[in-house]
């Protein structure tokens, strides 16, 4: 398959973005919460990595750390590195990261209404990156903005360009956000829950638009989501997060078809509609842990159906279990048992 060949040739290249052992802490009135604890992943040019997890797992904190958007002063990077183009973003001052992010790394958020300025016309907002970063004149910048709005599927763009954000629907606003994000042809696009606030038909359109734009531009994408289904069509690799750590990562088909972490397996079993109708769901017991009071050892062990006393002894690190596909890593000492229960 050509897909496979392309994937192989990419693996040989050095990654576009390399996150290594990232540690982020939040200072709260109740103590210090370690929101990210040793997160590592690579993103290659042209590939889509999905970062999946439930609330509090650290998936959004990861993108905030990359973009220097951690809420200050509560959150800070306390260890690890974020290597982009030979620069360690974790060590650079915020202003420098922002400059870089303006052109090379772009981001879209869940709520397009709160990310757009309500008192400026759409055209001026989409044109802003051209004017500020490329120093274009107003007319030229607006012409470029119009092109972009057409590209992301805003109907009647010539007229709509002078409308304000509230005059657009949620899906159209997300298209406008995407237009702004891709304006300067970023090399990486981070999409944090880009379709969570949207209706299901609109969600499918937006995911399709993102995939098309990626194919056209060759940019890398990091899709952050709580929804395992939404990313299934577009992502080639996934990283599943739990309590601030990546607990399983690998090719998406490998991970979804043969999950080897009990948490991943539990998540897949919890999805309604994924198995026979009328059958009760098999939820994971309990609820996600409090980051201020993490269980000893593997953070998942109190909810884990196959936990053994050793699970409490040490935090398991990512490893390639026996029989797993290349690049499939799991942070579970009993990963082999999970697989055998497929």
């Amino acid at each position: 398959m050509t897909e496979q060949l392309v994937a192989d040739s990419r693996r040989a290249q050095s990654p576009l973005l390399s996150v290594r052992d990232l540690q982020v802490e939040f200072t709260t009135s109740a103590g210090i919460a370690r929101a990210l604890d040793g997160v590592s992943f690579d993103v290659q040019a042209g590939e889509t990595l999905a970062i999946l997890g439930e609330s509090g797992s650290g998936k959004s904190v990861t993108s905030q750390a990359i973009m220097a958007l951690l809420p200050k002063p509560a959150g800070s990077i306390v260890g690890g590195s974020i290597l982009y183009d030979g620069i360690d973003l974790a060590k650079e001052p915020v202003s420098r990261v922002r400059d870089l992010c303006a052109t090379d790394i772009a981001m879209i958020f869940q709520d397009p209404l709160s990310s757009l300025n309500p008192v400026f016309r759409i055209g001026d907002q989409v044109a802003e990156p051209f004017r500020r970063r490329l120093g274009m004149g107003k007319k030229e910048a607006l012409a470029r903005a119009l092109e972009l709005l057409k590209r992301v599927g805003i109907a009647d763009a010539e007229r709509r360009i002078s409308n304000y954000p509230h005059q657009f629907s949620g899906g159209q606003r997300q298209r406008i956000m995407i237009a702004m994000a891709i304006a300067l042809k970023p090399r990486i696009l981070i999409a944090d829950e880009p379709t969570t606030a949207l209706d299901v038909t609109v969600q499918a359109q937006i995911m399709r638009l993102l995939a098309e734009l990626q194919a056209e531009t060759g940019m890398a994408m990091i899709l952050i989501s709580h929804d395992l289904g939404v990313v299934a069509d577009s992502a080639s690799r996934v990283a599943i997060m739990y309590a601030g750590r990546i607990i399983e990562t690998g090719g998406i088909r490998e991970v979804y078809d043969h999950p080897q972490h009990p948490y991943t397996k539990g998540l897949l079993d919890s999805i309604p509609g994924a198995h026979a109708m009328g059958e009760p769901l098999r939820p994971i017991v309990g609820s996600p842990p409090n980051l201020l009071d993490l269980p000893a050892g593997c953070a998942f062990h109190p909810r884990c159906p196959i936990a053994v006393p050793e699970c409490r002894a040490a935090v398991p690190s990512l490893r390639e279990p026996e029989g797993a596909a290349l690049g499939h890593h799991v942070a579970c000492i009993r990963a082999e048992e999970v697989r055998s229960h497929d």
Partner: peptide, 28 residues
């Protein structure tokens, strides 16, 4: 039809099914 076709499929690679409706993006 449109609504149900848009529901994301967990494993779109099974049965060659894709959760994406065919054709161009509908414009609203």
């Amino acid at each position: 039809k449109r609504l149900f076709a848009a529901v994301p499929v967990i494993r779109p690679w099974l049965n060659g099914a894709s959760s994406k409706p065919a054709g161009t993006i509908p414009r609203y």
